[in-house]
Design a protein around this nucleic acid. Structure first.
Lengths: 332, 332
DNA sequence: CGCGAAAGTACAAACGATTGCACCAAAAAA
DNA sequence: TTTTTTGGTGCAATCGTTTGTACTTTCGCG
């Protein structure tokens, strides 16, 4: 492996100059910089990131902590983030929290051990506040939160416009003539879900409809939970469901099918996240799309921007988009 | 940040002993090791990975190179690999090749710069041989290939049992009474796809059926390609398709639906990969499941095993599993 | 022509962990 | 008792890069 000393020797200068030349000028003569760059190229030099990290106290690596990497949403976020990080010479170290605060802490410790320059995180559902994040992140690392954020923590936050998304989804159902619209609301420990519930409520009241706590279903965010909620919703006379997830929406569709209801004629459903299957099932599922790839890019960009001292990125809200499909379209 | 010197001072011993104590005994007294471990814990010590990497010449990091992270299959492989690596104190550095050899080389260089201990890779479809991999991987890094492998390269290889998978899938269609079965075969640059085609052919000839080159469709591995292939297959009198991917299978289903054919009564389809949507669509899609999570675990385990000098892992074949669903089940 | 400023480089000390070698003690063998 | 072995530690160099400080040029200007 060729080092900067090798380059220095070969040019009759010192490693310090080579280092400076390679890290963007500063105070090196244009001609020496060129010479250094050329010989570096010629000799096949590749910076030893470990040495650099040790000396500088932080590495050209950004940690990404997600509940699970093999979820459509998160893998797309990571994909987007990686593309931006790559452009700027950073790599991504991926950790999973498995929706578990202890694993989340462990991940943060790993990242601190690796002296990462930044942490992009979407917290585990079991984490009810961000204390443990602050405690286990290196003080010099830049913290960027996305999707599931704690507004109490400092730093950039990239979130979906959950409030307006849910608002639009609910309004769409109302406009389609559904009269009693329930919601599968998720966990209120997450600000994202809380905002969606608020959007739903606001839409109802703006359109002159009543808010009925009996058809607000908290908890489960998996298909089975949606199925259970769907059955109860039907028992209580709902003719539509706004769901804060597509898997739960799928469960609700299943419940409706079991009762022999026609979708969308008798029962309407709008989900959230626009999972890949949503366009493919029959009937196809209307959904509030979240643009995870874009969110990943934004998160990485927020990190890059925050590297410049003084630069501050606040909250970035990425709009959600209603994808109208069969499950909610009874009026053409 | 507390260092081993801090621990040493606090115990009145030297950093060398602390280092040895922390890295599994070797030659330290049991009592001192305990003392070291306790004070390390008490002082909140966390190893500086950068320093360790610099000194040792390699880091506690494994690079994972995949075409795209936001594909169901790969994100699951990564999830599996990460879970094993984590157990052994390794982290995963993720790079995407975007199915592009140049990006693949760039990724390998990044990993070399980071002095990773190993590289887990599934090569880009545009890479026709593994020369560039050998050239750009650090000589001391352990190379593990999975799914898409070059058998010409050394080191462990984790592959699906593509031959038998395709064999089973095709046989299943034959057993269901389909008489003219085409195949959407993919690109022959990939050994995985070539093996699947062979399995298909073998099944046909074993069951006394003719192999007809006119209903073997090479190329495209996306939905649209499957749709086009499906239309031609129907024109040529096929009553079933074995597809080497689920997206292409989906396209074939679409073609059948357009012709007003009933599935599975008039036309049978078996896909490959068991994408998440496959169970959810109507009719549900039969598919050869690949167990990506398991493959990821195996790949990581192969890396861990290979760390021990002398230990050699060869080729590991993970069986594929036929998931029978509606699209191919006309006999109960 | 001389002096100060500016520009360009060199020196050397870090960063924190690891490890070959030397060393000392205590235990075992002679 | 002396010698050898072995079990534990300490010493000090090293990994490759970065960066504060000091030094040498070169140049401009009075």
């Amino acid at each position: 492996m060729v080092t900067i000393s090798d380059i220095a020797k070969s040019l009759g200068i010192t490693p310090s100059t080579v280092s400076r030349a390679l890290s963007g000028s500063e105070r090196v003569k244009e001609s020496t910089r060129k010479a250094v760059e050329e010989t570096a190229e010629k000799m096949g030099y590749e910076r030893n990131e470990a040495a650099s990290s040790l000396r500088k106290g932080r590495s050209k690596v950004v940690g990404i902590v997600v509940p699970r990497i093999n979820r459509e949403f998160f893998s797309n976020v990571i994909g987007g983030a990686e593309s931006v990080l790559d452009e700027h010479g950073y790599s991504a170290l991926i950790c999973q929290s498995h929706e578990n605060t202890l694993d989340e802490i462990k991940a943060l410790k790993t990242l601190r051990s690796n002296r990462v320059s930044g942490v992009l995180i979407s917290h585990a559902i079991s984490s009810t506040n961000g204390e443990h994040i602050l405690e286990n992140i290196a003080p010099e690392a830049i913290l960027v939160q996305f999707d599931r954020v704690f507004s109490s923590l400092p730093g950039p936050k990239i979130i979906s416009d959950n409030f307006h998304g849910a608002y639009e989804g609910t309004r769409h159902l109302i406009e389609q003539g559904y009269k009693k619209i329930g919601i599968i609301a998720g966990f209120m420990t997450s600000e994202a879900y809380a905002a969606r519930l608020n959007g739903y409520k606001q839409a109802l009241s703006d359109m002159g409809m009543e808010i009925d706590e009996d058809i607000i279903f908290y908890g489960s965010i998996v298909q089975k939970g949606g199925y259970e909620a769907g059955k109860i919703a039907l028992d209580r006379g709902c003719d539509a469901i706004f769901s804060t997830g597509d898997y739960t929406a799928l469960g609700a569709l299943q419940a409706a099918r079991e009762r022999g209801l026609r979708v969308p004629e008798d029962f309407g459903v709008v989900g959230t996240a626009d999972e890949r299957f949503s366009a493919l099932i029959t009937p196809s599922l209307s959904s509030m799309a979240q643009h995870p790839y874009e969110m990943g890019r934004r998160a990485a960009q927020a990190f890059i921007t925050s590297l410049k001292p003084g630069a501050k990125v606040g909250e970035i809200v990425v709009p959600m988009e209603l994808i109208k499909r069969e499950s909610s379209s009874r009026i053409q």
